[in-house]
Simulated assay, not measured.
Amino acid sequence: MSRILLVDDEESILKSLKRLLRVAPCSFGGKSYVLDIETCTSAKAALARAREEDFDLFISDYRMPEMDGIEFLKAAKQIQPDAARLILSGYADLNALIRAVNEVGIERFIGKPWNDYELLSAIAQALAHRELLLENRELANLVRQEMGDVSPEELEAQRLEALEPGITEVHWGPDGSVILDPELDQH
């Protein structure tokens, strides 16, 4: 099951997207994707959700009051770098499109109103691309391990760090004790 977070300040858009994604098949390359869809009307609330749960794909409106879609996706990329990213926009802004591609590495920029087939196809392609990137990373890690460039322990530390950023970092006190929360110990 692929988890998707939809972000748009207009509740009606979120309802339309959710309805479409529930009833229409989302497939690419012979593979169909079952979608678990969450929605947020606020970019800040969406970032809070991204800190709590993993998502395979973020789909964001471009123009929102708190922050634009590019700023949101840039922040989401910092939290979940492996998640795919799409932008929906009712505004044909070439500069915004270039910025989204260069700064955030979005998969696609889809115009509003969207074509249902194009949107479903873009979602399936983004999810397939993400799976391929993750699989390639795993294979590259196995090759590096076979060649002796990296140990199984280092690969496991990288995997754990990706799941829980900061988990492999240990903060030591001056007396040799382990400091569990370094921010609290700065007095």
Score class of each variant (00 low, 15 high):
residue 9 D to Q: 12
residue 14 L to G: 02
residue 15 K to G: 00
residue 17 L to G: 11
residue 22 R to M: 03
residue 24 A to V: 10
residue 25 P to Y: 01
residue 27 S to I: 01
residue 28 F to I: 13
residue 29 G to H: 12
residue 30 G to K: 05
residue 38 E to A: 15
residue 41 T to D: 13
residue 41 T to Q: 13
residue 43 A to V: 00
residue 52 E to T: 09
residue 53 E to D: 08
residue 54 D to W: 08
residue 55 F to Y: 15
residue 56 D to S: 09
residue 58 F to C: 02
residue 66 E to P: 01
residue 70 I to A: 06
residue 71 E to F: 04
residue 74 K to L: 09
residue 78 Q to F: 01
residue 78 Q to V: 03
residue 79 I to E: 10
residue 82 D to F: 10
residue 93 D to L: 12
residue 94 L to W: 10
residue 95 N to W: 00
residue 97 L to F: 12
residue 97 L to E: 10
residue 103 E to R: 10
residue 103 E to M: 05
residue 103 E to G: 02
residue 112 K to M: 03
residue 113 P to S: 06
residue 113 P to D: 04
residue 115 N to S: 13
residue 117 Y to K: 15
residue 121 S to I: 00
residue 124 A to L: 06
residue 125 Q to G: 06
residue 130 R to T: 07
residue 130 R to Y: 05
residue 132 L to H: 11
residue 136 N to E: 09
residue 139 L to R: 14
residue 139 L to P: 01
residue 145 Q to E: 15
residue 149 D to N: 12
residue 153 E to C: 05
residue 160 L to C: 07
residue 160 L to K: 08
residue 161 E to W: 11
residue 161 E to L: 03
residue 162 A to V: 12
residue 163 L to Q: 14
residue 164 E to W: 14
residue 167 I to A: 12
residue 168 T to W: 00
residue 171 H to M: 04
residue 177 S to N: 09
residue 178 V to D: 01
residue 178 V to N: 03
residue 179 I to G: 06
residue 181 D to F: 07
residue 182 P to R: 02
residue 185 D to Q: 01
residue 186 Q to E: 14
